[in-house]
Amino acid sequence: MGRIEIRGLSKLFGQVKAVAHVDLATDEGEFLVLLGPSGCGKTTLLRMIAGIEEPTAGDIVIDGRVVTQLPPRMRNIAMVFQSYALYPHMTVGKNISFPLRTRGMEKAVIREKVEWAAGMFGIGHLLDRKPRELSGGERQRVALARAMVREPSVFLLDEPLSNLDAILRASAREELRQFQKRVGVTTIYVTHDQVEAMGLGDRIVVMSQGRIRQIGTPRDIYQSPADTFVATFVGSPPMNLIEQGELMVGFRPETFLPADFVGDAEEVVRFPFEVTWLEYLGAERLVYGNVGEKSHALHVVSRLPGNVSLPVEVGHTYPFAVPRRDLRYFDRVSGLRTDGVAT
């Protein structure tokens, strides 16, 4: 249970293509993250899967059944909204039991299931409270419990952590992931936060301007970005890109290190690196600067781990290097990755 297939799905808002011919398929029990900047169509895609947005073209298939024309309640999906969308006039208990009551389930069964769901998220003691009496973290748990209580075949989450503060967000992320592994429900999770995407996803779908740019594991996305958009959107600071003839050469800031630290064991590419700005972040240092000639300076960033104790000062030039195997090449016009060889 819980396999979603999306075939040629498009959504037009007037003249604007919010989602442009998207094909996508999940595995059973997979945690799939839709990642992209705001306005890239990821939320629209999720809402179409939920059935609260009608696609302009294409089909949505859940467990082999074409559900494109079906209303949300006939799709056996659950959704957690960014605002949590708790019913403000109902107690927590009534909120959680709502999806069961709409199905006309028996009272005894409802009570049992509500207790099960509330227990799973540790909110059993809050059942008689109203949503406005809860903290942000508690509301988020209620929203999750309400979504899970009916045991859906697909679980849709629209930036459910973005309203939590930073500390809570980290622990909620871990909990969410463990919970999903335990129940094994196919999950589609929308976020614009790449850290969340990397930490949560079995696979990540990177979207931009309504199109899918790359689908892959977090490692694929990070190590071998499909194009310059993915290369610069994922990773903080983003991948360095420098023009070289017909190509763009990319390398991650953490692979760009002082020449002495790279070593000579493998083939390296050396650059003189003129430091213009420095950020000390505790565990690491971010070094901003230029490579190349003065007239045609190219801006790059290096990320020095804490154990690289080399003193670096603004205004000086140092020999830096990148191992050749860490270089990625992109077509300068299309932005797509190529296997081009250049120096």
Partner: peptide, 14 residues
């Protein structure tokens, strides 16, 4: 809020 109506829709309410 539109969210609340949509949540009810997803939660199976006619």
């Amino acid at each position: 809020p539109k969210d609340i109506i949509e949540a009810a829709e997803v939660d199976g309410a006619t």
